[in-house]
């Protein structure tokens, strides 16, 4: 049951703008009509058929066979299973680029400090830079409430049973936020080091966060995520004296998976190392296409 309105939509996706909870939105991804229309060819193993041409909504011309209903039709599709997400991600990317918005997809295991990193970052930057946040969690708006304390506009996506954000959820969320030109949009993905790797949100950069309380071999245990990331933030470095975590080793493992990764070592709690992270954010915004 939805905790805001009491409707039976717990297995659907809920998008709530903090401060405007009355107008939250439920939707089911599977119920939506596919947005794209692939080109394909098919042939008939039996029965009669005829062929004609018609123009699709997107302006492309396709050849079609129309078949008698009793026949067996083989449709050669060659379609990417995630084509719908990838199309939507491209649209998001175009929107972000047009408005010169730097959209960052923050991914990590649960508990690596994504929300704390955001709180510290927003507190430091929001007076100089327009920031917006999309929070993704399966349930609860706790994280969005924490972000709202920093006075930065935030939308909570509750994915219900889904273990990752996808491009369509993000699109619905930023439509509620209406981010300004030349701003940073932080998208905090569901805490999960596996599933979000597959779903392009249209982000400008993917930031994977690992904390020193985790194992330093995580990059080779969860290579897909490190392979798809652009930036690796190593968080909670203030705890290094108390844990068995080798920073050089984690970097070496991560670079094996992805030799192009760029690293930041910091502590969102003590502020150590945050300056280079802020500089990177400023540079990204300055260089936004």
């Amino acid at each position: 049951m939805c905790s805001t309105c009491g409707c039976g939509h717990a297995d659907m996706i809920t998008i709530t703008k903090i401060g405007d909870e009355e107008n939250h939105e439920h939707f089911s991804l599977h119920a939506e009509e596919a947005v794209s229309h692939a080109h394909h060819h098919h042939h008939h193993e039996s029965g009669q058929a005829h062929t004609h041409r018609h123009v699709h909504e997107d302006g492309t011309v396709a050849h079609h066979h129309h078949e008698v209903p009793t026949s067996r039709i083989v449709v050669d599709l060659e379609m990417d299973i995630l084509h719908k997400n990838d199309l939507m991600a491209s649209r998001n990317r175009g929107y972000f680029e047009a408005l010169q918005i730097v959209a960052l997809n923050l991914v990590s295991s649960p508990g690596s400090g994504k929300t704390s990193l955001l709180e510290t970052t927003l507190t430091a930057l929001s007076s100089e830079v327009n920031c917006h946040v999309i929070e993704g969690d399966q349930q609860s708006s706790n994280d969005a409430q924490r972000i709202a304390e920093t006075q930065v506009p935030v939308v909570q996506i509750n994915t219900g049973k889904a273990c990752h954000l996808d491009a369509q959820m993000v699109q619905k969320a930023y439509k509620q936020l209406s981010p300004e030109n030349r701003s940073i949009l932080f998208i905090e993905n569901v805490g999960n080091l596996v599933c979000p790797a597959m779903f392009d949100l249209g982000e400008s950069a993917r930031v994977v966060i690992i904390s020193v309380t985790e194992g330093d071999d995580k990059p080779i245990k969860y290579p897909d995520m490190f392979h798809s990331a652009d930036i690796c933030v190593i968080n909670k470095i203030d705890l290094l004296p108390y844990v068995q975590f080798d920073v050089d080793k984690v970097k070496e493992y991560a670079l094996r998976v992805n030799p192009n990764l760029e690293f930041f070592e910091l502590s969102a709690t003590t502020g150590e190392g945050m300056e280079s992270w802020y500089k990177w954010l400023h540079d990204r915004l300055r260089d936004a296409p």
Partner: peptide, 28 residues
């Protein structure tokens, strides 16, 4: 992903294939 080149040991590579995730065909 973290497999070094068996010839020279480098981790820098580009993947030629292996990311496919497609519906090839359907019979209706």
């Amino acid at each position: 992903h973290y497999m070094a080149c068996p010839a020279c040991g480098s981790f820098r590579n580009s993947m030629i294939q292996g990311k496919e995730l497609k519906v090839n065909s359907l019979e209706i």
